[in-house]
């Protein structure tokens, strides 16, 4: 697909830089039945971001945004660890599954809350999800009682740090979720309905789409993705930190979506693009480490990337900078019409 060409190009360029600066970058080896290598690590450490970004993609496709995913990451990790820490045996698989269930149910409930505020109450998405972004951190600390809950559970450790069939388990989870989303949106019809609501909400309503329910489902799903990411992150370090888990992941996720070619104005979305976008961000971090640039400058690179991507996406920028001598087309929106939107 043409739309994926240039994020793929950026990723390739980043990998190329690594090839030059790092020995054995593309080397993948099997040790003790597990796959190892820099490329595997990019996937492994990038897995939570990919998940959150996938959920965010659907939200953004509906013309929305979800700022609360970082908080949901922290809450779900905290809830799972709290449940496990109270188990008589932390290695009990049933107990761990129960804990995961409780954590994910909580995440979904929070997502439904976001969806309710956006769809039913009619609050702008950025504001509606800001509430949970602020309160959620407190909620996560409330769950952990302000401590960092440390657990020692082998089954739980599997989610973020374990291997299965030689592959890191996190990659398997991402693959399963990606396959699921791709199935539901592209094989089933959810994707079309989402793109339609994001592209023209009124036309969608008049075509009989139940946009309220759809929005709630999308926000709930986004929170579910964040919840799973939260499990991965806490499992990887075998502890839950209400304060720092998933800090700023919402911004990285939005960035990944935008880099992947899904417009913040809603409508068409690209799951593949989002995965590429998340991988670019993760590779950028890895690259900066590996070529010896101080890791602190990652943020500078990100600032640069956001600016360039957004400028390129802005029609006003393209019109002003790549101005051609064509006769300007008549405005399709009559001057008076824009005004009615806001009262």
């Amino acid at each position: 697909m043409k739309r994926l060409a240039w994020p793929a190009g950026i990723l390739a360029a980043l990998l190329l830089v690594n090839l030059i600066f790092t020995d054995h970058f593309f080397q993948i080896e099997i040790k003790e039945g597990h796959l190892y290598g820099s490329l595997i690590d990019i996937f492994r450490f990038g897995a939570p971001l990919i998940l959150v970004a996938l959920g965010m993609t659907l939200v953004i496709a509906t013309k929305g945004i979800d700022l609360s995913v970082g908080s949901v990451v922290a809450i779900s990790g905290a809830m799972a660890c709290l449940q496990i820490s109270t188990l008589p045996s932390q290695d009990s698989i049933g107990g761990v599954l129960g804990a995961i269930g409780v954590a994910l149910a909580l995440a979904v409930a929070l997502g439904v809350g976001n969806g309710f505020l956006v769809a039913i109450v009619g609050i702008q998405p950025i504001i509606a999800t800001l509430i949970l972004m602020v309160a959620g951190r407190g909620l996560a600390q409330l769950i952990t009682d302000g401590q960092i809950i440390t657990i020692n559970s082998d089954p739980y450790k599997l989610i973020g740090g374990g291997y299965w069939l030689t592959l890191p388990f996190g990659i398997i989870i991402v693959a399963v979720v990606l396959a699921l989303i791709a199935f539901v949106t592209r094989r089933l019809a959810l994707g079309l309905l989402i793109e339609s609501v994001g592209g023209n909400a009124e036309a969608s309503r008049l075509s009989g789409i139940r946009s309220h329910g759809l929005l709630i489902v999308v926000y709930a799903f986004c929170a579910l993705c964040a919840g799973i990411a939260g499990l991965m992150i806490s499992s990887n370090v075998s502890s839950a930190d209400g304060n720092n888990a998933g800090l700023w992941i919402e911004l990285d996720a939005i960035l990944a979506v935008v880099i992947g070619g899904t417009s913040l104005a809603g409508g068409r979305f690209s799951l593949g693009g989002t995965v590429l976008g998340a991988l670019i961000i993760q590779t950028l971090t890895t690259t900066i480490y590996s070529i010896g640039v101080p890791p602190e400058t990652t943020l500078l690179f990100k600032a640069l990337v956001v600016t360039i991507v957004c400028l390129l996406q802005s029609p006003a920028f393209r019109a002003k900078v790549f101005r051609s001598r064509r006769k300007p087309a008549p405005p399709t929106v009559p001057a008076g019409e824009k005004v009615t939107v806001r009262t």
């Binding site: 602190e296 943020l299 956001v306 957004c310 400028l311 006003a316 920028f317």
Partner: peptide, 18 residues
């Protein structure tokens, strides 16, 4: 350039922290 304030100031946030 008619870019949302949210995104532009997000870039500004990254830049200043960086």
């Amino acid at each position: 350039f008619e870019i949302q304030p949210f995104i532009v100031t997000l870039a500004g946030m990254f830049l200043a922290r960086g």
